[in-house]
């Protein structure tokens, strides 16, 4: 179990969200898509090395940019 940011996960890795250090508006939108502390989040892929990320949380898949993903802290479980 090691703590890192969502942007650092490799495809196929799952992390448990420990901290959401993001501004209010985005925070609420993420909550609405099911992203919240304590939930497992799986990295599916990224487009190019600096491109956006494709992640899965529960049954929902979302894409987000690396800048935002860096502020979502996770502990890696697998």
């Amino acid at each position: 179990m090691s703590s890192t940011s969502l942007a650092q996960l490799k495809p196929g890795q799952i992390g448990i969200i420990t901290n959401l250090d993001i501004e209010e508006g985005l925070y609420r939108r993420l909550l609405a898509t099911g992203v919240r502390i304590g939930k497992p989040i799986e990295m599916l892929r990224s487009i190019f090395s600096h491109g956006p990320l494709h992640v899965r949380i529960g049954m929902t898949e979302i894409m987000l940019r690396r800048t935002e993903a860096q502020n979502i802290k996770v502990t890696i479980t697998s």
């Binding site: 993001i22 985005l26 979302i62 894409m63 987000l64 940019r65």
Partner: peptide, 9 residues
Amino acid sequence: EPFILEIPP
């Protein structure tokens, strides 16, 4: 503005 988008099946 941050950007998140849902990817539907």
